[in-house]
Design a protein around this nucleic acid. Structure first.
Lengths: 226, 226
DNA sequence: TCCTTTATCGTCATTTCGACATTAAGGGCA
DNA sequence: TGCCCTTAATGTCGAAATGACGATAAAGGA
């Protein structure tokens, strides 16, 4: 029996932190199916193109992100037979975490693109295809990985203060870690952040030391959610 | 531009514990490419079939496992353009953890099938396609998940003793947790295991209490690797 | 100048961790 | 029938981590 060829797409869950909230990048679909509906940015894999290269390409074409060297990891693959009315399409989802690239989504292919707070569209049925499910899985992955990896620093621009890093956890987890204990854990976790010589007063009050992302990927010990 | 259809396969990393070692299920390929070489069990996704259903089907057809209600989760998707000499094949890998189903791999489709200790083929080039890489990723996933989930119990048959569960960690992590501290952590981690009224003397010495898998998926607190 | 604000460091009681001792409860064997 | 050997389970204790706070530092602004 001959195997059946299928279409393979890559969809992106792009997350960032904007004004203290975790937001996802969405594009408005211009064509059927689901024309006019919001969807995750994505596209089909081209011949000779690796999956991750498709993700990087779409990140540039549809999201205007690429200069930012975002964190990019494979999320999961969705292949329900009826997930696309056009026929059999298997979608490999990637999760990207980027520092806020600003409002106008430059270089965007899509008719329209916007950042939306993830809280409002968790179980919403407004997204095209099974993208609400994919988005939920991406947010869940980000929540979990904040605990035992240094990914939180990927959501804010360098250099950053300890308090700005704390606000990432506050936004993604919905809990406010104690500033003093948080400071102790972050600076004692080996390789999470590296100190610079500069400080900033952008928070008001006493100048805060500025840090850059450290070499550590896994955190020892992990940050705890209570 | 029309998108290019591709073949979509599902490959399985099936792990179990046999005589104190972590082993993976391999099948010997009967046809080109890589005829005669060992490979992960797998097959193409059929029309109208969901990815996870393909995994479950292959688990029965190629591995003779199915009665055992194994733990099954998606691992990752591999789509390098040159990973299959026949052409473009995207493979969705699944990770299955099962209690030892015994030596003869019954109901097996493949010409030959065998359990192999994962330690010996970590970076080996003896496996077909990119299956060595997939296997390594699967083992790495299992190692990580043992830390903060109750998955260790999926590798042994019920009911089991605390020491049998400890041997899972010893085999997968390559370290010997202290039996007394391990006992304390397991029985205090909420929902990891549930006590039965029975005991066994199969270990020799004082009878050990028998447990079943608890309802917990995540472990609080997690088991630590030092 | 002093007051408000935020950052950083310190304190301390509680909990957890890791190493180890002790007691419990079976089977094997003389 | 007793000893003895083996493994299971519980207990102990110092070191380390955690969580809830207080105290001090360093800026800008009234």
């Amino acid at each position: 029996m001959q195997p059946t060829p299928m279409l393979v797409a890559v969809d992106l869950v792009v997350l960032t932190l904007r004004s203290g909230e975790l937001e996802a990048l969405l594009v408005r679909r211009g064509v059927e199916p689901y024309a006019g509906r919001w969807a995750l940015p994505g596209g089909f894999v081209e011949p000779g193109e690796d999956l991750v290269d498709t993700a990087v390409r779409e990140l540039g074409e549809e999201a205007g992100i690429g200069r930012l060297r975002p964190h990019l990891e494979q999320l999961a693959t969705y292949g329900s037979p009826d997930r696309d009315p056009r026929g059999r399409v298997v979608s490999v989802a990637y999760l990207a975490l980027v520092p806020d690239p600003g409002d106008p989504v430059a270089g965007s292919d899509a008719a329209d693109a916007a950042w939306r707070a993830v809280g409002t569209l968790g179980r919403s049925r407004s997204l095209a295809f099974d993208h609400a499910r994919i988005l939920r899985d991406g947010v869940e992955r980000a929540r979990a990985k904040l605990e035992y990896t240094s990914l939180a620093a990927a959501l804010i621009p360098e250099p950053f203060t300890v308090n700005e890093l704390r606000e990432v956890y506050a936004a993604v987890w919905g809990v406010e870690p104690d500033p003093r204990n948080f400071h102790r854990k972050v600076t004692s976790a080996d390789g999470f952040v590296v100190e610079t010589h500069a400080t900033t007063t952008r928070g008001g009050g006493r100048p805060a030391r500025l840090y850059r992302r450290g070499p550590a990927v896994q955190l020892h010990p992990p940050m705890l959610r209570g």
